[in-house]
């Protein structure tokens, strides 16, 4: 796949001396949904802000569609839409005016038909003549998305789009993001809701203390780092783990009624068979068995925790 954004050795130190980014190397593929995960202050917003032109880059370079964001900022920025984290929108204006303003600002001639469709897609059409201050927080968030899409960008940045948004709107929003992706828009989002990144993203980057710790396909990331657990519900409580099973590093639950075997998802499954056979030989009976996979959240916490 072609890369649509190329971040090369990007570093940024703020005048306060705080180094927000260190040698970030990142490639965003055309048409993908890329999720940027990281704790607060990790540099997510700084990275997005530099690509969008709000913060000056330190050293390094960023190419958008092959265009340098500093030297060819006009062409580069025309391709980008940004939904900021804060609900920053001029509250005295009407929805229609503010969306038209955004389109003009990005150098596009008026296109009422497109804006009408956009507002309808975001369930904002019946609010088009409302002043923004009269809208709820969730509606303001939709307005910000409409503004970001008003100039028909090829790349959409969403900085924490679902922060403080109710369940219904969040679902709507993800549906809309999928639709956009299907129409060919590349989407880069940051989120704290890891399960959503797990749900939505094609690839995931983890950023911590200004460094991009890892970038990978979501599925291979989960495979690589994911662990599986086999849970055995015992018929009779087991006072202790039989010494013969020491090699499996089993855990016994507090009530002595559950045996937990943690294994690597990529490892061949033969060990499970031998474990079960051995249990059978030792006369340990179980009433139920299930397996569970570690979620992206576990992986994420594992990664962030490792460094802490």
């Amino acid at each position: 796949m072609q890369s649509v954004i190329q971040v090369n050795q990007l570093s940024k130190t703020y005048p306060s001396g705080f180094q927000a980014l260190q040698n970030v190397q990142l490639e965003i593929r055309r048409g993908e949904i890329f999720a940027l995960l990281g704790p607060n202050g990790a540099g997510k917003t700084t990275l997005i802000s530099i690509i969008c032109g709000i913060v000056n880059p330190g050293t390094g370079s960023v190419l958008v569609d092959g265009l340098d964001i500093v030297k060819q900022y006009r062409q580069a920025r025309q391709r980008i839409g940004l939904v900021p984290q804060e609900l920053s929108v001029s509250i005295f204006e009407t929805v229609w005016d503010t969306v038209s303003f955004s389109r003009g600002l990005f150098g596009k001639p008026a296109d009422p038909a497109y804006l009408q469709q956009l507002l309808k897609d975001l369930s904002l059409w019946d609010k088009k003549d409302s002043k923004i201050m009269a809208l709820s927080g969730g509606m303001k968030r939709r307005v910000l998305i409409a503004k970001a899409l008003a100039h028909q960008p090829q790349i959409l940045f969403l900085d924490e789009p679902t922060a403080g948004v109710d369940v219904e709107l969040r679902r709507d929003m993800w549906q809309m993001i999928r639709r956009l992706r299907d129409s060919g828009v590349t989407i880069i989002l940051t989120t704290h809701y890891i399960e959503e990144a797990e749900d939505m993203a094609d690839r995931i980057g983890v950023i911590r203390a200004g460094k991009l710790v890892l970038v990978d396909d979501k599925s291979s990331l989960m495979q690589k780092l994911g662990k599986k657990q086999l849970l055995l519900q015992l018929v009779e409580p087991l006072p202790e783990i039989p010494p013969a099973l020491a090699a499996y590093q089993l855990q016994l639950s507090a009530d002595n009624r559950q045996l937990i075997y943690t294994y690597d998802a990529q490892q061949e499954q033969a060990t499970i068979t031998t474990l079960l056979r051995q249990l059978n030989g030792l006369g340990v009976e179980f009433s139920d068995l299930n397996t569970q996979e570690s979620s992206l959240e576990d992986i994420f916490i594992g990664l962030i925790g490792d460094a802490a």
């Binding site: 709000i54 920025r77 980008i80 804060e86 920053s88 929108v89 001029s90 600002l105």
Partner: peptide, 18 residues
């Protein structure tokens, strides 16, 4: 000053304008 104060300046800064 208003866009600076309300935060809407992000849009001006990210727009393809000189």
């Amino acid at each position: 000053y208003m866009p600076k104060f309300s935060g809407t300046i992000y849009e001006i800064l990210s727009a393809p304008i000189s």
